[in-house]
Computed example of a mutant assay.
Amino acid sequence: MKGKNIICISQTTWEGEFTKSTVQLLSILAENNNVFFVEYPFTLKDVVMSVLGKQRAQVSRMLGFKSRIKKIETPNGATVNHVVMPPVLPVDFLKNETLFKSFFSVNSFIYKNQLRKIIKKFNLENPIVITAYNPMYGLPMIGQLKELLNVYYCYDGMDTQRHRSRIFNIEKQFCEKVDGIITTSDYLNSEKKKLNKQTYVVKNGVDFNLFVPHAKKTITSGSSQKKVGYIGTLDFRFDIDIMEYAVKELPHIIFEFTGYLLNQNIKERLSKYENVSFFGSVKPNEVPELLSNYDLGIIPYKMDEVNKNIYPLKINEYLAVGVPVVMTAFADLTDFKAMAKSAHTKTLFKEFIESELKNDTDSLIQERIAFAKQNSWEGRAKEFESILENFVSKKQKL
């Protein structure tokens, strides 16, 4: 796919403290296409909090004192147009639906008006609009941007933390109206296909070229103390009970947790153990070297309805540096059946950690690295492009 105008209505920022599938895919699509990445709009409250130093938002760009659009060079040498929207009204707290819809219509107008200005200024004819996990703003934009195609990129299940329970109905409407949906897991695909037959899967990948220079060559000496690590957001998805059991039962093993701490209970319950350490977030390009210091990587997520949707980015990242992976059975990740251990109980989780550390070999390290290479973002981007081309072809035949 070449020469297309792509506008991404995102739920996140471009930069941040963790790897984002949207950023990885768009960086590659930008090699041959004109990509505009639109950050999730901050509110007037965020502006005030940033001025007071309690948040970090690009206030000068949001208010128009500096250009709302700037070019960002990606690691692969492509260029993405990075867009910051004007601040909108804080409305998510409103319980009354009539009031919410009234005030949110103002936000939609601000958002639509800004996008139309960009489309006009840069002559973005027939844009392909990709809404990345943001049906709240994606829904009111359908048919408003003279788009060639409107695609929903869904990489997680909806929750009520930000938009309350109203988000479920909004996402349902959005799924039914878009030209197609691309999900990141088989479970998400099966759910969205009930709402839109044009639903396909492109699973998460790994920046293999970034990770492989730090890949292990051999297992750590058996006499040294083993180190188990987790890198990622520490939030409500994290299963504290299972993790605490393993930490308590394996006092001879070091456990390190690195990432943005959103659930303070995790640190409060685990930091009392001498074999546990917590570290703040690191930049995505710092992750490979950190992972290479581990003897095993863990993904201790709760086994609940929300986590069923997940295809975790970190699983391929762990494998890319050659470390074994032990996770809870939070999702149906059959692709990794031969590469990672999946535990349904706290006892199994603990036992898998022990056995994987004890039985690791140099040949298994190489098998993991080879497996991760097959899941590179370059390969995923080709799959993504192919599906977009298929959507375009079907749309043009109508």
Rank of each mutant, 00 (worst) to 15 (best):
E367M: 11
K346Y: 04
L188C: 08
V88D: 05
K397S: 11
I142M: 14
I118R: 11
P75W: 08
S342V: 08
L364W: 00
Y273G: 12
M339S: 03
Y200L: 12
M141D: 04
L89D: 06
N96W: 00
E356V: 06
I310V: 15
L261T: 08
F211L: 01
V47E: 03
L296W: 07
K54G: 04
D186K: 11
D332C: 00
P75D: 09
F391P: 05
E383L: 13
I298R: 08
E171G: 04
E385P: 00
T199H: 08
F103P: 00
M141S: 15
E317C: 09
K394F: 03
W377E: 06
H252F: 13
N107M: 03
N265A: 07
A340W: 06
K314M: 12
F238C: 08
K194M: 08
K117L: 01
D295N: 12
S10Y: 00
T13L: 14
E286K: 10
F65V: 15
H344Y: 07
N189E: 15
I310P: 05
W377N: 05
Y137C: 09
V326F: 01
F109S: 14
T19V: 11
G205P: 06
Y153K: 11
P87S: 13
Q374W: 00
S393Q: 07
A343V: 11
D335R: 10
V106D: 02
S363V: 08
Y137G: 09
W14S: 06
K120Q: 12
D241C: 01
P288N: 09
S281N: 06
R237Y: 14
K203F: 01
N316L: 13
F65I: 15
V206Q: 07
N32A: 09
V306W: 12
K95E: 10
E305R: 07
L333C: 00
M49R: 14
V228P: 01
K226D: 09
I119F: 03
L364R: 13
V228H: 01
N309K: 11
T22A: 04
D295S: 11
I142K: 06
I298Y: 00
Y152I: 06
E73S: 02
I253D: 08
L89W: 02
N76I: 14
P87L: 12
K217Q: 15
G297V: 06
M243I: 02
